[in-house]
Nucleic acid binder design. Structure first.
Lengths: 145, 145
DNA sequence: TTCGTTGCAAAAGGTTTGCATACCA
DNA sequence: TGGTATGCAAACCTTTTGCAACGAA
């Protein structure tokens, strides 16, 4: 039944137990997660999958635009399924890791103008936003900022 | 004579041959360079300095705001001395690596408003811009995009 | 003399690859 | 059956750390 999920995300790809499990776990995560996080969650759920396969599958999902990627300060890559409405910028809580898409049309437009005014072409951008979310300010989740 | 350079950048720090050489090399580079690039350049110039020292010194320069940092797709860190006018965003050529600061006040303001409208506080941002610079479009430097 | 600094070698940490095996179509 | 996908172990790369020796003040 996960076949549909695979056909939708990876047309032309073989449907395997591992890929189905990974896509499911990725959807459930909702927020940004690392490859090792996903692997740990899958293993805990009893799904047998190698870490290598997790990396390989995430890399393809990244190339095909099905997940957005950010980097921790440590350099670790974090993945999140890209919302259907095409949002691509997120505000991530430094304390709990929760993320929410933000509307960044004005930045997109600014980037377009930049190309026009600088002699640079094919301008691409990466925008990473972090902060402390409401719940973490009051309640105060454990880990330090 | 490089003492002045060190006192200016790192008040309270000991002036060593290695630090002087690193600051000089960093200034000469102008564009973004990696730790290993710097180390190679220094070694080629006959300056004896350990790679460890390069990393350690760059880390401090980063913390004290004397250099700006970006990340290659590979995860490698690249450093560039921060201009006197406090610019913090750069447009980097994907072909030759040349970078130029860009005026991004409108983005800065957008980020400030974001904090007000999302219940997130202490919002920080990272903006990376890449493109293909004028000379690389016509002349065409070697390496692929 | 003191204590910050250096540098080697080794560790760390995340990601990728070689290669034999397993399995989808 | 054919060729893709998987998984283990090992390789890779950049960055960090332990520790003894060095040297600026």
């Amino acid at each position: 039944m996960e076949d549909a999920l695979i056909k939708e995300h990876l047309p032309g790809w073989r449907s395997t137990r591992q890929r189905a499990a990974l896509l499911r776990a990725l959807r459930e995560a909702a927020d940004f997660v690392s490859a090792t996080d996903l692997h740990a969650a899958l293993t805990a759920d009893g799904a047998a999958i190698g870490l290598t396969t997790v990396y390989r599958t995430l890399r393809v999902l990244e190339r095909t635009g099905h997940v957005d990627v950010t980097r921790e300060k440590t350099g670790e890559r974090l993945y999140r399924p890209r919302p259907a409405d095409g949002h691509r910028h997120y505000l991530v809580c430094r304390r709990c890791g929760h993320s929410r898409p933000v509307e960044a049309d004005s930045v997109e437009r600014w980037v377009e103008n930049l190309a026009a005014s600088t002699a640079f072409t094919a301008v691409e951008h990466t925008l990473e936003l972090t902060g402390v979310c409401g719940p973490c300010q009051s309640g105060g989740t454990s880990s330090p900022e």
